[in-house]
Design a binder for these strands. Structure first.
Lengths: 350, 350
DNA sequence: ATGAAAGCGCTAACAA
DNA sequence: TTGTTAGCGCTTTCAT
């Protein structure tokens, strides 16, 4: 039989090439072939090379299912989310995936909406597939996913969602983020800073408001009542109407609870002929590119660093899977201020 | 030994419960236990019930890896995308997942950006994990993913991305979608309809423009030169400036290439004091909720039905996996017009 | 009606 | 240095 050149480049068709095929073709035993391809055991470099070459030629691809069965490790994790629009889950996913892909770990993405049945379905599927771990993510820090993940028998990490007791969780530091925003305004010399934000039933609304008040107090500035409404542009515009309808002097800065409100605020101000940032500076929250970057002027806003958060979650899950101990608790990851143009030129201190 | 009540509710801890555990506990053989739990073979109803009850009590969960190894089927598919923002990939994913989850199939989501190395990494991982198939998706119908999927040895379906030759693909019917939009305007009595769209290097720009021209011709209306620019709000506003800066009579309807342009157009018109939809009707494309619903007035726009497209792709992949033959070729799935308020009340014909 | 045995494709201990 | 063997957890003939 000629040295197999005729096999070159043939894609495995019907039956995939197995390690046994490689071993036979190379004239060695299964075990030897295995060791050769895993750079384990001892053998002549020549043998190893020959086996590897044979594997390459045959288009051999190890069967991960068999490997996983044996190693008790599937190199697979599940990510649960209820964030249908992906505003939060996609950056998280990007970070998670980035942390895992280089370790050969793939991610099952499962949208459970807010449906317990769907959640159970996905979790069952994951568990049967023997995922090495699960990352639970969401769209709200103060709401749980519609499934109980506390007794699963696999490591679970919570990222950007309300965790169970004694769980390991990563969340954004909303107080810190709000501080960043308000301190920025203070540093720019703004003195009458108001806060227009979302509905009171969101925990973050109170956390951010508390930080807002704290920073004003520290700066010796008067605080205005926090204005709560919807997370929408129209609420932002409405808030501007309220703020500027009285003859009294309006604010010179508005810290908004999210980018959509901020966008509404900016539009409302422009339509009243009020210059941004000249007369009023505006800061948003979320750094939702599509909203923030297209505002007029482009929005200075707080970024929750969700990709980094996802990366941390992924790496931590990996540690857990490797059996390393991880202290339970909630870790708050810092936000970051993205300076665009809605507050004017940043002071020279940066 | 007492009848095991003390085991009730104990979550499997260290070593997961195996079928062997169930068999021993129930006092039967492995084979019998397997059959009992799969509703196969023949045995007394009593035996079957007892085994099932035992499994339940022990919290037995079949090891999908072992099953997959044997059945040569992993109940797992991979979804490839290069759509980082998820504008297209998330609706697709939702549809795909919906079609698959009830069949116990989970989805690996893999963002390959436009990086061939990353793409190869993900595809290799999928193949090693023995995915039953792959769905390739993207953000442009006229660009390929940065990896060759033609010789993988597993079924591949293309959804909303440029397919390889002889592949099975699902795409949106952009001509049809554009027809829907322009015919809507015609039906509402608009006569001077212009088209403001994206860059010429996008194939869809030409497809939609062709449909725009065709509909105008059929209606005996004059077509205006198609205005190509960026896919941005600012281009929409600029287009309005161009259209209305001359004293000549401007259009009474504007068909926009996407929702962002449409939003810019609406803003531009409002800022010029031109009533929408009174004086000018506006239609968008994409039905990107966050942009379309928050426009003033809310935007009538074309929805590409991406979730349905994903569902089709998922179901078709399933057929393929089951060995059913599927005709290769590109299937165009119809779009749908979502009527909001930017064109005025729809005529009584609906 | 039930069970023993042979694998699915691979790895790792132990022999040779 | 290489090969033999015993599984990983499960399904499936084929006996009994």
């Amino acid at each position: 039989m000629a040295e197999g050149m005729e096999r070159e480049g043939i894609a495995p068709r019907k039956r995939p090439v197995t390690l046994r095929d490689v071993a036979e073709e190379a004239g060695v035993s299964l075990a030897t072939a295995s060791k050769a391809l895993n750079d384990q055991g001892r053998m002549t470099a020549e043998t190893r090379a020959r086996i590897q070459e044979t594997a390459r030629r045959l288009g051999f691809r190890p069967n991960g299912l068999a490997q996983s069965l044996l190693r008790q490790r599937s190199f697979t994790v599940g990510m649960l989310t209820n964030d249908t629009y992906g505003r939060f889950s996609l950056p998280l996913m990007a970070g998670i995936s980035e942390a895992l892909v280089d370790n050969g770990v793939s991610v099952f993405l499962c949208n459970v909406e807010d449906d317990p049945r769907l959640g159970q379905l996905h979790v069952d599927a994951m568990l049967e597939k023997r995922v090495d771990g699960i990352i639970a993510t969401g769209k709200r820090l103060d709401r749980r996913l519609p499934i109980d993940l506390s007794q699963l028998g696999v490591p679970v990490i919570y990222a950007f969602t309300e965790p169970d007791a004694d769980a390991i969780a990563f969340v954004s530091d909303d107080e810190g983020g709000a501080r960043l925003a308000v301190e920025h305004l203070v540093r720019l010399g703004r003195r009458r800073i108001v806060h227009v934000t979302g509905p009171a039933r969101f925990a973050v609304v109170h956390q951010r408001a508390a930080a807002y008040r704290a920073v004003l107090a520290e700066a010796g500035l008067a605080e205005a009542p926090v204005m709560m409404g919807d997370w929408t542009e129209s609420w932002g515009r409405e808030a501007v109407d309220i703020l500027f309808s009285q003859a009294a002097d309006g604010p010179d800065a508005i810290f908004c609870g999210n980018d959509q409100i901020a966008r509404g605020v900016i539009d409302g101000l422009r339509e009243r002929g009020i210059d941004v940032p000249g007369s009023v500076a505006v800061v948003g929250f979320d750094n939702w590119e599509i909203v923030a970057a297209e505002a007029r002027p482009p929005l200075t806003t707080v970024d929750m660093n969700l990709a980094a958060l996802g990366r941390e979650a992924g790496l931590t899950l990996l540690s857990l899977v490797d059996g390393k101990p991880v202290e339970p608790g909630i870790r708050k990851l810092p936000c970051r201020l993205v300076v665009r143009q809605s507050c004017g030129r940043p002071p020279g201190d940066q």
